[in-house]
Simulated scan of single mutants.
Amino acid sequence: MRDAQGDLVVDQFAARGRVAFAQRTWPVDPGDLAVLRDEVRRWLDALGYRLDAVDDLVLAVNEAATNAMEHAYVLPGPDDTVDIDFWVEDDALSITIEDHGQWQTPGPAGGRGMGIPMMNHLVDTVTISHDASGTTVLLRQTLPEHSALRPAAAKQLR
C-alpha cells in the first residue's frame, strides 16, 4: 500500500510467518519528529513491550532520526529523506534509520554529542554504518517473552 506521497506504508504489520514489517520515508523536517514518534509508538503497540521499553525505543529512533536530519544534509532540500524500516525476526525487533546524505564525523561534545551513547543505553544493540550513499543506524531489541510474534508464542497461537 502507498500513501499520498507514494511512500510504502504497511499498517499493523503484514505478517508472513514470523516476520512483521513496516516502512516509511520521512522528509528531512525536524517539525515532523513528533509525528514520527507517534508512528513508531503505534508500530510498537502490537509487540507487547512494557510502556518504559516503548519509551526507550521511541527515544532511540527519535535520536537516530534527529541525527540524520541535523547532520546528514548540509542544506536539506525537498527531496532529502530519512527512511525507517521496522521488522521482527526470530526473537528480536530490528529498526533501521537511514539517510542519503554525507557522514559527519562526531565532534567534541560541547553539550551535545550524547545521542549515540544514549541509543546504546536504550536498546540492546546499535550498529552504525556509512558509505557514499548515506548512513544507516540499526537498532535491535529482544522481543518481550509474551510477544505473539516470538516463535514459541506464535506456535501456541496456531
Rank of each mutant, 00 (worst) to 15 (best):
Y49C: 05
Q102R: 14
D38K: 10
V88P: 02
Q5G: 03
V126W: 01
Q156E: 13
S129V: 15
Q156W: 04
L93G: 01
D90C: 01
D99H: 09
D52G: 07
V54I: 15
I97E: 06
Q5L: 05
V19L: 06
V10M: 08
A68R: 03
L93W: 01
V123H: 10
Q141C: 03
A15Q: 14
K155F: 01
E98D: 14
P151R: 00
A46D: 13
P151S: 00
A53R: 12
D32H: 06
D56C: 14
A152L: 03
L33Y: 03
L157T: 05
A154E: 00
R150I: 00
D80L: 03
E89N: 07
P76K: 01
G101A: 03
T127L: 14
D29W: 02
G134N: 04
R42Y: 15
V28T: 08
F86W: 09
H71L: 04
T96S: 08
E63S: 11
V54K: 09
V28H: 02
V58M: 04
A132P: 01
V82M: 05
D99I: 05
V9I: 14
Q12H: 10
V58E: 02
P144A: 02
R112N: 11
D83I: 13
V82S: 02
V137L: 07
A72Y: 03
F86N: 06
H130C: 07
P76C: 02
V58K: 07
F13I: 06
H121G: 07
L36T: 02
A14G: 09
V58N: 02
R24E: 09
K155V: 02
L93V: 04
A64L: 11
D7S: 13
P144Q: 05
T136K: 13
M1V: 14
W87I: 00
P108K: 13
E98W: 06
H71K: 13
G113I: 02
V123G: 10
V28L: 11
M119D: 10
P27T: 02
D83Y: 06
M114D: 14
Q141H: 11
D99S: 06
E145W: 04
H130G: 08
L138H: 09
D56N: 15
G77C: 04
W103F: 13
T96P: 03
L8Y: 08
F86P: 05
A20G: 12
V9Y: 09
Y49P: 00
A109I: 10
K155Q: 06
D124N: 12
V61I: 08
V9S: 09
V54R: 09
A152G: 02
Q23F: 13
L75C: 03
G111T: 14
P27D: 05
G134Y: 08
D85E: 12
S133L: 13
Q5W: 10
A20F: 03
N120K: 15
D56K: 15
R18G: 05
W103G: 05
S94R: 12
D55W: 07
T135H: 07
R42L: 14
D52V: 11
N62Q: 13
L93A: 02
P117L: 12
D55P: 02
L122I: 09
Q23A: 10
A4Y: 15
A72S: 13
T127I: 10
D52Y: 09
V123K: 06
T25C: 11
H71W: 10
W43I: 00
G77F: 02
A148S: 09
D11M: 06
A15W: 07
V54M: 07
A65V: 01
P151D: 00
S133E: 11
E39W: 15
A15D: 12
L59T: 14
